[in-house]
Design a binder for these strands. Structure first.
Length: 499
RNA sequence: CGGGGCGUAGCGUAGCCCGGUAUCGCGCCUGCUUUGGGAGCAGGAGGUCGCCGGUUCGAAUCCGGCCGCCCCGACCA
């Protein structure tokens, strides 16, 4: 393998990351391990999320949970185990999920009378409970969310992107009408987009999935699709209008204003720790991770520099004073900044720089004896590498501005990359094949609506229709013909190879 | 599950073809000197060579079987 031959040069120098250009997938794996986001576990296909990675997840949870609450949702928790019979109650659902379910057959040393499925998703058990709690239209809507782990028996796994167990949130709602459920489905898709762009600085395209990519048991599935730096698509979040399929399967019905019995309309929507993989592949560079200020567990690291013992004591003391002041949660009069002081002794400053750059910390403040004398430090941005002096007095007011600027710049840079690797002009199917075999892209093209065409393209190029994009993402001049068959186009769609 | 690759110290590896009790780098520990971009010197700890069996006076090395992991496919948030 060429890439490995190339790596041989670095065999004794494990300080260098494999570059993205050399081998993107190797770069990703190394980066996740080296930046201490996660590690492989003793169980095949499962991962350990380490504190740095879990810290990002906690910040994701906090932001999303606030958004869910702000849109009227409440949290609850449903069991990990689901009676096997529940899965079978919705035909399409069981067909979609049964092959990837882990099933408990024994408990307390005895064979179970009814086997228990470890949830791959919780529609069945949640709607069975909703059915108990809903009698009247006055009981609706139910707007629930749960933070949980789920298990899917995957053939091939990758850290964060596809593991057998993963952490996620799943929203489950019940409504009186189709339109209200549809509105909820779209609203939550919008919440996801807002989170991904606003917090992750990861631009996404929203749109509807084709039937072949629709959630098993849903009427319609919508998704947020992000483009990674290898030009492949990552489905970062989904929102489903489930129609009445589960309501009928679990007898989730109510009496409406007219006194008639009616089935409820459900939605479900979820995002997972997979987003952390998306974060890595959106912003990481050959030096390591780059984390957006809103999600990074540490926003600024202070590296004290000294020669003598006196200087060591003085710079560390100053560093800690600054960290305390900026990070003090008892001071509501200013925005709290998450600061870490790297006062490790016996580790040289340069080594500390690499350490924190690998881990993606957005800002570094260097404080040495010269800086102490001038009451200022050197501030370095991880995203742009820009370096400039800053007065200690100015930190409190300037840092929030700089952090916001970094957040904005990261989104803008990612947007520019996505646009640069999107193809909106009409291309031939032959050209399309070349692109998918080569650099890859998001290709906007006409599609005749035939699933057979979709299957054929997947077979021939491994590319799939990521979505039928929402209006704001469509091309100014819509395609009129199908890229593959030349027949009249039914939709403009986005083709790409996906994770 | 199909194809490819790999299992030797915490990590990365040499040795294997051609059998004689394991090499080097990183990391770790101790001491001294160091600290504005990955520190230096000295000393030290750490090994069922993936597992089981076979051949042999002797196996990391040869033979058979098994297990695990990674990569590429099929499947998928």
């Amino acid at each position: 393998m060429g890439f490995l031959d190339d790596r041989d040069r670095h065999m004794s120098d494990d300080k260098k990351l494999t570059t993205r250009a050399e081998n993107f997938s190797e770069w990703y794996n190394e980066l996740v391990l080296r930046s201490e986001l996660a590690d492989y576990s003793p169980v095949r296909g499962c991962m350990v999320i380490r504190p740095h990675g879990y810290g990002i997840w906690e910040r994701m949870q906090r932001a999303l949970d606030d958004m869910f609450k702000a849109t009227g949702h409440v949290n609850a928790y449903f069991p990990l185990f689901i009676p096997e019979s529940f899965l079978s109650k919705e035909a399409e659902h069981v067909e979609g999920f049964a092959p990837e379910c882990a099933v408990v057959t024994m408990g307390g040393g005895k064979v179970l009378e009814e086997r228990l499925v470890v949830r791959p998703t919780s529609e069945t058990i949640i709607y069975s409970m909703f059915a108990k709690w809903v009698q009247s239209y006055r009981d609706l809507p139910l707007l629930y969310n749960q933070w949980a782990n789920v298990v899917r028996w995957e053939m091939r796994t990758r850290l964060f992107l596809r593991t057998m167990e993963f952490l996620w949130q799943e929203g489950h709602t019940a409504h009186t009408t189709h339109d209200e459920a549809e509105e909820e489905t779209r609203r939550m898709l919008g919440v996801y987009r807002e989170f991904m762009e606003g917090h992750m600085a990861m631009p996404v395209i929203t749109g509807q999935k084709t039937d072949s990519e629709r959630f098993a048991g849903a009427l319609r599935t919508y998704s947020c699709e992000a483009m990674m730096q290898d030009n492949r698509a990552l489905q970062a979040g989904t929102s489903h209008n489930l129609g009445q399929n589960f309501a009928k399967a679990f007898d989730l019905s109510f009496q409406n204003e007219q006194g008639e019995q009616a089935f409820a309309w459900n939605t479900s929507w979820g995002v997972s720790t997979r987003m952390i993989g998306g974060l890595v592949m959106t912003h990481g560079d050959d030096a390591g991770l780059r984390l957006p200020p809103r999600l990074t567990p540490i926003q600024m690291v202070i590296v004290p520099i000294w020669k003598t013992d006196d200087e060591r004591d003085a710079t560390i003391a100053m560093a800690k004073r600054i960290a305390d002041e900026l990070g003090n949660f008892k001071r509501p009069d200013h925005e709290r900044i998450r600061v870490h002081v790297d006062d490790r002794q016996g580790v040289k400053p340069g080594s500390k720089y690499y350490h924190w750059e690998t881990r993606g910390i957005p800002l570094r403040l260097e404080i040495g004896p010269r800086d102490l004398a001038s009451s200022s430090g050197m501030l370095v941005r991880r995203d742009s590498r820009e370096k400039r002096p800053i007065a200690f007095d100015a930190l409190r007011t300037e840092l929030p501005v700089i952090l916001d600027q970094i957040q904005d710049d990261m989104l803008a840079a990612a947007r520019a990359r996505v646009e640069a690797n999107s193809i909106r002009e009409r291309i031939s199917y032959d050209r399309f094949k070349e692109i998918m075999a080569g650099p890859g892209a998001f290709v906007y093209a006409g599609w005749n609506g035939d699933p057979a065409v979709e299957a054929r393209v997947k077979e021939e190029t491994k590319a799939t229709i990521r979505c039928i994009p929402d209006p704001e993402f469509r091309s100014p001049v819509p395609p009129t013909t199908c890229m593959v068959t030349g027949e009249p186009a039914k939709h403009e769609v986005i083709w790409a190879r996906a994770y």
